[in-house]
């Protein structure tokens, strides 16, 4: 069973309704140089990704730097150009929207950036930062804005004293709370969190992760949680997707993927994570070399160059994301998946 059919079938089931569907998404960037900016090469940042998020899901997207996870997140918000494919929010396409439609999409889909030090305007007060969305979308006026801003700031752990301060007066964790308040005040449906805690220390990270879990319930949100930290992904998500070189190589329920990884890349990734328990035996698979670049990638399986179990067919034919194993929701793009 292919992943697409699975997605379509699932819409008819009595599960939570599907909120977001990504169908065969391609995001390409062309590298231009020289006289008249001739196109020299194509970076295939996202290369045929299928995803579906049910209402209330926390979908964790993991992968190493350059695998396309951030580009995928940005494409959903409309910040990356979609070369091919479809993104549906509640069944309606959100690719290439303009005017009022784009405005409304911006309200419903909010993005939290990785670096809380560069994503807040340094010369605006917290009140302006958080309230600007209300003003732009015409959701409140005058003193209502201040009231709503204060209520939201209180929810994420601030008080009235913080209302007229500037971003530089806050620590990294506090700034990430401000970013969160700025997104939540618009009552979005979908929150895309791009490495929200990787710039933070572990003790602060724990506070932010707890807050995220609380507000997800409270505001009935759906999360696309992008991270390279497997521990954080495991704690936060109910479903995860593993990306490699622009492809989704494995997806399924978090417990299935962590306990029975089927794709060799997922297995390597999980074995690379150092454990804080000195008694855990480390049976690590070391990979040769660096990840290849997504500039004009070769045909076949994206992982073929580094895969420990590579066979001739892997270099010729790209495997499809299909269902393997016992769990109904576990899909792997590999010709020779490890199924137990």
């Amino acid at each position: 069973m292919r992943y697409n059919n699975h997605v379509n079938r699932k819409t008819n089931q009595s599960h939570n309704p599907i909120l977001l569907t990504v169908e065969d998404l391609h995001v390409y960037f062309s590298i231009r140089e020289g006289w008249l900016s001739r196109q020299r090469a194509t970076v295939k940042a996202v290369n045929g990704v299928n995803l579906s998020l049910q209402q209330g899901d926390v979908f964790g997207l993991v992968g190493e730097s350059g695998c396309g996870k951030t580009t995928l997140g940005r494409a959903i918000v409309g910040l990356s150009p979609v070369s091919h494919g479809q993104i549906l929010l509640k069944g309606r396409s959100i690719v290439g929207l303009t005017g009022q439609d784009a405005h409304e999409r911006a309200r419903q889909v909010q993005l939290i950036f990785q670096d809380p030090y560069s994503s807040l305007h340094p010369r605006k007060t917290v009140c302006d930062l958080v309230g600007v969305g209300l003003k732009l979308h015409g959701l409140a006026n005058g003193y209502e804005i201040d009231e709503q801003v204060l209520a939201m700031l209180k929810r994420v752990g601030f008080n009235i004293d913080h209302l007229y301060r500037y971003a530089h007066e806050f620590s990294g964790g506090q700034r990430q709370r401000i970013s969160l308040a700025r997104a939540l005040i618009l009552r979005p449906k979908l929150l895309i969190l791009d490495e929200p805690t990787s710039a933070l220390d572990v003790s602060v990270q724990a506070q932010i992760l707890n807050l995220l879990k609380e507000i997800r319930q409270e505001f009935n949100l759906t999360f696309l949680f992008i991270s390279h930290d497997l521990g954080v992904i495991r704690y936060m998500s109910n479903r995860i997707g593993v990306m490699y070189l622009g492809h989704l190589v494995e997806t399924g329920a978090t417990s299935d993927v962590f306990e029975h990884p089927q794709h060799p890349y997922t297995q390597v990734l999980l074995s690379s994570l150092p454990s804080i328990d000195p008694d855990t035996p480390s049976n690590r698979t070391l990979l040769e070399g660096d990840p290849p670049t997504p500039i004009d990638p070769p045909p076949g399986c994206p992982f073929a160059q580094r895969c420990p179990g590579v066979k001739p067919i892997c270099r010729e034919q790209a495997p499809e994301l299909i269902h393997h194993g016992n769990s109904p929701d576990h899909f792997t793009a590999c010709h020779f998946p490890h199924v137990d």
């Binding site: 003790s203 990270q205 497997l230 521990g231 704690y235 804080i276």
Partner: peptide
């Protein structure tokens, strides 16, 4: 003790993570 408990790797997703209060 607090630092070790805040690491989410093996934490139970159904419980809030232990967080050291304050700054």
């Amino acid at each position: 003790q607090g630092l070790l408990k805040t690491v989410p790797d093996k934490a139970n997703p159904d419980h809030p993570l232990y967080a050291i209060k304050g700054n």
